[in-house]
């Protein structure tokens, strides 16, 4: 079942987290140590998202007996 693939399921969540982290860092309200910790965490997320992108594969399923 394609919908159950946990890696794909995660992509949107991870991407949204990255977007929000970059926003937080851009806003500049974090302390230096907070923003550096967030920077490090987000870098890891970006790396894993890029890996997910490389691994993606579309399948086509045809409904042969629709009822």
């Amino acid at each position: 079942m394609p919908a159950e693939d946990p890696k794909k399921k995660d992509f949107e969540t991870v991407y949204k987290e990255i977007e929000s982290a970059v926003r937080d860092i851009e806003e500049g309200k974090l302390s230096l140590s907070e923003s550096m910790a967030l920077y490090e965490e987000t870098m890891k997320k970006i790396q894993s998202s890029k890996k997910m992108l490389r691994k993606m594969e579309s399948r086509i399923e045809e409904i042969s007996n629709p009822s």
Partner: peptide
Amino acid sequence: KERWQGADIIFHP
């Protein structure tokens, strides 16, 4: 398939 390989296609003819 060209743009985004992250979605499966469910085809209902």
